[in-house]
Nucleic acid binder design. Structure first.
Lengths: 187, 187
DNA sequence: AACTCCATGTAAGGAGTTACATGATTGA
DNA sequence: TCAATCATGTAACTCCTTACATGGAGTT
């Protein structure tokens, strides 16, 4: 039940059309809650029907921009959701599953895959660090800013974790004998 | 497409019935890939139909234990899956979403929720550390063992990250003024 | 008229969740 | 025999993903 609230938050920050929301879910908000345009359009329809948002007066025909804004009921729903208890979901990480499977059936080719993930996480980390430099300079620290900075810090911390873990794991694999779990090694 | 492979791995480690699998998905494997018994039974049926596993000769009536084991085709499918490229999924963490929403609409009651999550992650971390002490003593380090240890290390590292991040975030909230984002404060 | 974007959708299916149903076994 | 427990399922629903469809606007 997070998508509607993600959309409410995005619309509160700035009233938008479906496509604009989709773009924003590809960057800032999407860094910790991704969504496709199909999900977004469907959810916009539901939110409008529930009276939490409304579309601004616009030509209602198909293929035309439709801009949405949050109604007071929508803001109230969001405020209520923010403090509502929700247990953290257990980890669900296919890569760990694959490592466990590799422990049983052998991991031919797994090292390459770990290296690929390492590169991806390094790139993501660099992107976050760039955003941090641009958007969170030491001056201007009001509360809103600080909370948003904490969110970004979580992204940075998680990427740092994965980078470190992948490096250690790769070095463990290499200790097992050069190329032990590589596609070109002897499984 | 991870659940079938999680089940194949579990069955390779030890042939089991649906309920036994469910129990194991509540602990070891479940720490990074959870599943309910409904998912497991459905998937066991599919895997059997695809010829990747088979049920050992047993009374076929309802309410009777049915033990499964992996067939060669199942092992081959798992080997193939292990090295197959799969991009890491972007983060999807409702708590970060709520923090971002709090930055916009205020976070009355959020501090309590962060404290609750902190306690949960501390408990999970303690559990992992206990498992590490029990299952991974310094002696006996064959390859299988090391890979499984790396998996556990990921769990430990992630929990350590969340504990640290939550503590920092709570201290940031407190700097904003005592009780700023508490339910009993002035949001 | 054909092509390319922009923008909003529909359709179908997979995966996970929640609630409930049914049969076998065991113990009081 | 009654209840509890073990064990295997069904049903209905939500959410997400992938592929495709449709309409408008501007260009050539």
């Amino acid at each position: 039940m997070s998508l509607p609230h993600a959309i409410l938050t995005a619309l509160l920050e700035k009233p938008s059309s479906g496509l604009e929301l989709t773009r924003r879910f590809d960057k800032s908000i999407g860094f910790f809650w991704s969504a496709t345009h199909q999900q977004i359009y469907r959810e916009l329809g539901r939110l409008e029907q529930s009276g939490l948002i409304r579309s601004l007066p616009q030509p209602p025909s198909r293929g035309q921009r439709k801009e949405y804004e949050v109604l007071p009921a929508g803001r109230a729903a969001l405020v209520e959701w923010v403090a509502q208890p929700q247990d953290p979901k257990p980890i669900r990480e296919p890569l760990l599953l694959r490592l466990r499977a590799a422990a049983t059936v052998g991991g031919r080719g797994l090292a390459e895959e770990l290296e690929r993930h390492l590169a991806l996480h390094e790139r993501q980390l660099a992107e976050y660090l760039e955003i941090e430099q641009d958007d969170f300079p030491v001056e201007r620290v009001d509360e809103e800013n600080r909370l948003q900075h904490r969110v970004l810090s979580a992204g940075i911390g998680l990427e740092r974790f994965w980078v470190a873990w992948l490096r250690e794991t790769l070095s463990v694999l290499r200790e097992e004998g050069p190329g032990a779990l590589r596609a070109d090694g002897r499984g």
